[in-house]
Simulated scan of single mutants.
Amino acid sequence: MSRKKGESIIIDDQIEVKVVAVEGDVVKLGIEAPKSVSIHRQEVYRAIQEENQAARMADFDPEWLRAKLSRSRGK
């Protein structure tokens, strides 16, 4: 799919991605979407995912898991 400056695409009847400017290798996009839709650059999204994973691992309590497994096995 190709778009020129000022042209856009519509996603799922509610998200519009518009080419605002093209400056050399850089394409500037304008995005209109419902507030419930998160929009991030890919590198920011990946950093958020990595931090969330690290937080989940930091909150992991192996003793709690052992106790839960022991109770579920009837021990």
Rank of each mutant, 00 (worst) to 15 (best):
S72F: 12
K5F: 10
E63C: 01
K28H: 13
V19Q: 02
I31W: 01
Y45S: 02
K28R: 13
P62W: 08
E51C: 03
K75P: 00
I15H: 02
Q53E: 15
K68L: 15
K5C: 11
V22K: 07
K35N: 14
I11G: 01
L29Y: 09
N52F: 12
H40V: 02
A54V: 03
D12R: 06
Q53D: 15
E43C: 03
K18F: 04
E16V: 06
I48S: 01
V26F: 06
P62G: 05
K4I: 09
R3F: 14
G6E: 08
H40K: 13
G24T: 01
I10E: 14
S70D: 15
V37D: 06
S38W: 05
S2N: 15
A33E: 05
V26A: 11
R3H: 11
W64E: 14
G24P: 00
A33Y: 04
M1Q: 12
I11N: 02
K28Q: 13
E32N: 10
E50C: 01
A67E: 15
D25C: 04
L65V: 12
G74H: 01
D12K: 07
P62I: 07
K18N: 08
L65R: 09
D13S: 11
I11W: 04
S72N: 13
S2I: 14
K35M: 13
R73D: 06
A54G: 05
P62C: 07
K18D: 07
G74Y: 01
S8R: 04
V19C: 02
M57W: 10
S72C: 08
V19W: 00
G24E: 04
D13N: 12
Y45N: 02
K18R: 14
G24Q: 03
Q49E: 15
L29T: 03
K68D: 14
G6K: 02
K18E: 13
D13C: 04
